[in-house]
């Protein structure tokens, strides 16, 4: 699946996108991100699957576009 990083997460990951083979819950995906990228476990972020925000118990099939969204700061 394609994973997009925004805001401070793009700086911590040193990239704006990545590809992962993953199927499971959002909570498990968060754990994988924290293991993969240092600093992610300290950050608050929402996750959108195909542009819709999903909760931690949501099950990902593996073919979604995921976006990791730190708190919005527009304006």
């Amino acid at each position: 699946m394609k994973v997009l990083f925004f805001g401070v997460l793009s700086e911590l990951a040193a990239k704006s996108a990545d590809e992962f083979d993953f199927a499971g819950t959002v909570q498990e995906f968060r754990k994988m991100m924290s293991d993969q990228y240092s600093g992610f476990s300290d950050q608050k972020y929402q996750i959108a699957a195909n542009q819709k925000v999903v909760q931690d118990d949501h099950v990902l099939e593996g073919n979604e576009e995921l976006a990791l969204l730190p708190p919005f700061t527009g304006g």
Binding site: F6, G7, V8, A48, A67, L69, P70, F72, T73, G74, G75
Partner: peptide
């Protein structure tokens, strides 16, 4: 907009 729009500032 501040609450919902997916925009980030640096």
């Amino acid at each position: 907009i501040k609450e919902k729009l997916p925009v980030w500032k640096k």
